[in-house]
Design a protein around this nucleic acid. Structure first.
Lengths: 218, 218
DNA sequence: CCGGTCCGGTTAGACGGTATCACCGAAGGG
DNA sequence: CCCTTCGGTGATACCGTCTAACCGGACCGG
């Protein structure tokens, strides 16, 4: 079996365990105060250690946040992969996406929130993003919808490098892209609280958008 | 004439002038490093003053950011109002929204970016948001589209408190909401850089979404 | 014109955060 | 059994917000 993170030596076991606890506390802090409120000092104090000890486990605050972003991407990829397991269509994917987002809004924002102008995601994150897109394209091929946008599909047919060598026709590219942007539109506004106090149920709006993405309406 | 900000007394003139310059520098910093990178100290240094002087003009960092958020909302309301001036439909509104967003992405994120969990927008901001929504509803009444979502429209017909006493039928409510969420979906992903390297032109995608929101397709 | 008040600016400093450094003790492997 | 390596410590530099005490000049009524 491949060498998992489960420790070979006791030292490594302890190390990955402490790393895990640091990340857990970090997630709690982010859930409570958002990503900019994350404080290494506070985490160390919570764990009974004193400040600089954490630098044995993470190169710095940015490194820790990057790690959390990586985990968030992995978690999203897992959720999406699970929902699309054996040739499922976009509908289940959409429901899984919303469940994943509501389960931990700040995790969603780690992936899709306001970016720091200077920040560049590491390569493996973009690899995971590519895998998510591939899964999305798979499901988009198996889904029929009504609408078509000749102009957009023509454009996508000529600019499909983001799909790699995926065997998806322009209509599937369009479906995947609209799926992504429309559901993100509803989700991000909902999670950011822009619907609070408006009175309607965001789930209904989300469901309606998902319906129009996945059903061939008359 | 109403008392504008243009100074009555020289003191007030000077004060609002310094406040304006502080906000200008703050906008520059936010554009360069994002909202969390805003530093009062750096602004003071840039202006040739020393740290605490800025507290004569703003109660603190949060107060300054809140003021910038207020300005961003006002700017968006102005742009939307100008685009919808004499009974225009959603198409022009959509183009104006994208232009406004691309003109200053960080300003867009001040309005629609990742929220700080504890933060609550002041009342006048929600008032401006309401005005934007009213303008959007006006335009949505004058626009015909093809799609309909009976379930969503029925739900909105019963939960229309966010529309206040606006004379908009359920279809218009649905159009306004979809307009908001779909265009935000494309815009926020584009501004966050999630389309970079994918090869296609976000403007085409945005245009296609706007088309389907404003044209009665077969 | 003059005196008092208000206002905008200063320095000093408390406090908390990131991050580096030198040092120490103990666990672990040869 | 020794020695290396690793995890943890306190001290420290630096930067950030924000408060406090203080000062000088602009503004205002008389």
């Amino acid at each position: 079996m491949v060498a998992g993170k489960e420790g070979r030596t006791p030292r490594e076991r302890y190390r990955s365990q402490v790393r895990a606890e640091i990340k857990e506390r970090a997630r709690e802090q982010i859930a409570a105060s958002g990503a900019p409120g994350l404080s290494l000092n506070a985490i160390a104090k919570q764990m009974g250690m004193s400040g600089p000890a954490l630098y044995r486990y993470f190169a710095g605050r940015d490194d820790l946040i990057t790690e959390l972003i990586r985990d968030a991407y992995r978690s999203l990829a897992d959720a999406v992969r699970a929902a699309a397991a054996p040739g499922a269509d976009l509908a289940g994917l959409g429901r899984a996406l919303r469940a994943w987002a509501l389960d931990d809004p700040q995790r969603y924002f780690l992936v899709y929130g306001t970016p720091v102008p200077g920040y560049h995601a590491p390569d493996d994150v973009t690899t995971i993003a590519r895998e998510i897109m591939a899964t999305l394209l798979d499901a988009a091929r198996l889904t029929e919808d009504h609408a078509d946008s000749p102009g957009l599909e023509a454009h996508l047919a000529q600019h499909r490098q983001w799909a790699g060598d995926h065997p998806a026709d322009p209509a599937a590219l369009r479906r995947a892209l609209s799926f992504w942007t429309r559901l993100h539109g509803v989700l991000s506004l909902e999670l950011a609280g822009h619907f609070t106090g408006m009175g309607f149920d965001p789930a209904v709006l989300y469901g309606a958008e998902l319906d129009r993405l996945t059903h061939a309406v008359p």
